[in-house]
Structures are given as C-alpha cells and as structure tokens.
Amino acid sequence: MNLLNYVPGDSFLHRLNPVTKLLAAFLYGIAAIICNNVFAEIGFIVLMILISATAGIAKRALFLTRNLMLLGLIMFVIQLFFVRTGDPLCVIGGFVLFTTGGLKSALLLSLRVIAAMLPLMLLFAITQMNDLCNALVKRVHLPYRYAFIVTTAFRFVPIFATEFHDIQDAQKARGVDFDTKNIFRKLQLIAPLCVPLLVSSLKKVDVSAMSAEMRGFELRGYKSGYKEYPFGARDLITVLVLIGLIVVTALFLK
C-alpha cells in the first residue's frame, strides 16, 4: 500500500477546498499538541479514524496509525528513560530505571505525535498534489516556482522507485549478491545502485526543466490557473469547528 496515494472520492472531506484541508490538518494537529490528557489524546486518534471513515479511507487511516505507532514507540522509549520526575516506578538493583512522571510524559508524547501527524498524512489521501499546489498558488499566492518543485518531487517518487528497482534487477542479473550479511560487502553495493540512479535522475531533471520551460513555465502567474478553488460554506464550517476544538482543548484538556 502506498502511503501517500490519492484515493478518489466524493465525500464531504474530498469536496473541501484544498487550502481548507491543509489548514484543517494543521489545526487538528495543534489541538492534539495542546492537549495534555492521555485519554483525550487517544480520543483524538480514534476521532480521526472515524472522520476518515466518512471519506472511505478508514483502512488507510488504520494502516497509517499502525506505522506511526513505530515512530511513537521510539519517542516513548527515549522519553521514558530521560524524564526523571515523579516517583520511581521501576527500580533494578537500586538504580531507578524510570519514574511515574517519565511513563506519563512518554505515553503522552508518543500519542501526541501520532494524533498530530495522522491528519497531515491523511491529507494526501483526499487531495491531489496538483490541486493542493494550484489552490495554494491561486488562493494564498504561493509563488508557483515552489509549488512546482513540490509537485515535481512528488511525481518523481514513483518514477525513481521503478528506476531503482530496475537498476537493482540489472545488477542482480550480473551476479551482485544483495543479500550478503557482510557489512563491508554491503557498503560496496552502494555504488552500483546509486551511480546509475544519479546519472539517470540528472538526465530526467534536465528534460523535465526543459519541457516545463518550453511550455511557458516562466510566464505563469498566480492568476494563470484554470481551475478555480472557491471557498464555500463547508470550508467555513470546517474551520470554525476546528477552532472550536482548539478552544475546548485549551480550556478543558490542558
């Protein structure tokens, strides 16, 4: 499953203005970061998965949550041993391994990371990258150059992935053993993979730039975009609800 692929749909979320979607994802993240209650944090995650379900991307949300848990786990471990407030909780041979404060703050931080990242990652499931950039150029007047760099980078990800896979196949067919356990041999494998990839990416980027220039890239202004991205009532409602969420969180869950 590709983590960032667009999932077509016609739900309330899909029909929001791309700028609203981005803003909403950020606002939800802010609320999750302000929140200081372990149970509410779990609530944020569950709520996000439920919201995803309305756009038909619950499966993606669950998948992402599982992957983010890995990141959460790392944060948890670090936090657990570094925060030394509260009462000792686990003592081995007179040495305090971690404390109640450590456990609480570790739990909170890792859940917070998941709750804040989840909406941003889900954004890509309901927004075409092109739409997001075009809307940012049109509505927020982001310079097109930056928008183009971002969309191009995203577009090249699958192209380079295929290229990398093919290069790996080509080297395997010549007898290169990629399964070796020997660390020195592994280091020697970097060049046969990276050199062809680098050479081909340089060529590709060149063609890409030339093609864009020949099709009037430099003439483009923020008014050029054909598609309009109007804000509607649903955008206003969404933003208001999220601001409400932040206020409630700030008042009761801090």
């Binding site: 290069i167 196949d169 080509a170 067919a173 010549r174 046969p192 993979l193 050199v195 062809p196």
Partner: peptide, 12 residues
C-alpha cells in the same frame, strides 16, 4: 547472462 533494454541501468 542478461542483457537489458537499457544499458544505463547497469553502468556504474
């Protein structure tokens, strides 16, 4: 031995 369509995938 395997000769691919595109030699650039192997030259390193």
């Amino acid at each position: 031995g395997f000769l691919f369509q595109n030699p650039d995938r192997q030259i390193c």
